[in-house]
């Protein structure tokens, strides 16, 4: 563990807590993409299959349980509890256009052609594009609530911090995972225009409103 990865995990944790707080306090899921949350649930389920078979540390197990538990709770809030406030018309990204290519790529490009490894690779590739339905929804509605912007900033920062973690681990431990790094770079790049909007607007107290 290093400071970059710890900050990254805390940023990820913060993003999930911000999202839950937004939903619980406002009792509304307006502006939140249910499809992205379903993709995140798929990512966590596929990646943490070894939750009960391989023990890394208490921290690792607790975080995995928390991530899986909260993402399914989020889906419950969106599609059941606060279903009336779910904006399905604007949450119209065709996720099959993500899952099929990502699934194919996981079969072709992986560290080892073994079921668990391919499923892990699928979760890494899927995570890098899982936010697209959410960003697409914001571009369609033309704006994002400030609390949703904080959620996205924390979520985007988590993988950017993981990139720093991988640089550190390469020099400190000789650890290098090309698949995770490339997917992490793609994932972080997808947030860049949002980061720009966040820093130039939200930090000055304005709302994010994209040209619709």
């Amino acid at each position: 563990m290093n400071i970059f990865r710890l900050c990254g995990d805390m940023s990820h944790l913060a993003a999930i807590i911000i999202l839950l707080l937004k939903m619980w306090k406002t009792r509304s899921v307006a502006g939140i993409s249910g499809k992205s949350q379903i993709l995140f649930a798929t990512v966590f389920t596929a990646r943490y299959l070894d939750l009960f078979t391989s023990f890394i540390s208490i921290y690792n197990t607790c975080m995995k349980v928390f991530f899986i538990g909260t993402v399914y709770f989020t889906i419950y809030l969106i599609y059941m509890k606060f279903k009336a406030t779910y904006d399905s018309n604007h949450d119209s990204f065709r996720v099959e256009f993500l899952i099929v290519p990502v699934g194919g790529l996981a079969f072709l490009v992986n560290h080892e052609f073994a079921p668990l490894e391919i499923i892990w690779t699928f979760s890494i590739y899927l995570e890098s594009v899982a936010i697209l339905p959410q960003l697409f929804m914001i571009s369609k509605t033309g704006e994002a609530e400030t609390i949703t912007s904080h959620y996205l900033f924390a979520l985007g920062s988590y993988r950017a911090l993981y990139l720093c973690n991988w640089i550190y681990r390469y020099y400190a431990e000789g650890f290098f995972d090309l698949i995770a790094v490339v997917a992490g770079v793609v994932q972080t790049i997808l947030y860049c225009d949002f980061f720009y909007l966040y820093i130039t607007k939200v930090m000055k107290g304005k709302k994010i409103s994209l040209p619709a």
């Binding site: 391989s54 690792n60 991530f67 560290h111 995770a180």
Partner: peptide, 10 residues
Amino acid sequence: DEFAPKKDEL
């Protein structure tokens, strides 16, 4: 399998 880095990250 020696090429697959250990999976100790979230």
